[in-house]
Amino acid sequence: MFTFTLPELLQQLANGLTIGCLYALVAIGYTMVYGILRLINFAHCDIFMMSMYFCYYFITVFSLPWPVALVLVVAATALLGVVIEKAAYRPLREAPRISLLISAIGVSYLLENLATVLFSGVPRSFPAVGNMQEMVEIGEVRVARLAIYAPIMMVVLLVALLYLINKTKTGMAMRAASKDFETARLMGINVNKTISVTFLVGSALAAVGAVIWGQKYPQIQPYVGVMPGLKCFIAAVIGGIGNIKGAVVGALMLGVLEILLVWRFSALSGYKDAFAFIILIAILIFKPTGLFGETFVDKV
């Protein structure tokens, strides 16, 4: 069990980190929406799925050059997130939270079934974007380029996001609204607009995650978002839902642990997904607020 070479370990860690970064990009969306609406946005994983289809259409079907396609995918996904909020959550602003939750579940089923009708249940293969799937060797470690791009992408986006939240007026409005809608309104903040921005940002990040995800697991079907979505939700809970840095740490932990588990205990690899849920249960029992719960910073 403990016989392996350093390059092997590094390779697995790189692998785990890549997955962790992808989880992080999606987990941030869960945590941001939770922060402002106290809603677990069940539709988030289906926004992720739709984003993969957008990418498939723009690149494979319409043969757009990939940089153009990427911009369009991010824009379309962000728009989808905003529209969902407007149509399904905004009318329930004053309703009990459970109604909102049920609406989110409804949107999730709607998107999954809509995708089945529009795109059929036949799995499609996800297009290669740039040279992300190309293998490179760093010393004795062989990884796909995306193992290098994903962390860079994640860090850049995270820094930009933290800047937005902590240093800009929009971010200040988000932090205020996440505490108290009424008082935020009294400050002259347009709370609906602020919530739209939250969905826009969360969905855009999920789109980036979806494209990179497709490079690693290049197959799309209407339920492709469900398992990664659950994992990312778990990652957000591990970190303390509502806390952005927590979601990132939770996602990286989950990604790395999962990969190490599969690698070292290959007999258990079939239980990889169950493992995430075991962590979730453990967290909920022993530290329900998550690793970073209850701190003040960056709660959105």
Partner: peptide, 14 residues
């Protein structure tokens, strides 16, 4: 109804 996790200065700015 001050914003509890914003600093005093941030509360004024908001």
């Amino acid at each position: 109804r001050v914003f509890p996790d914003l600093t005093v200065l941030e509360n004024l700015k908001i």
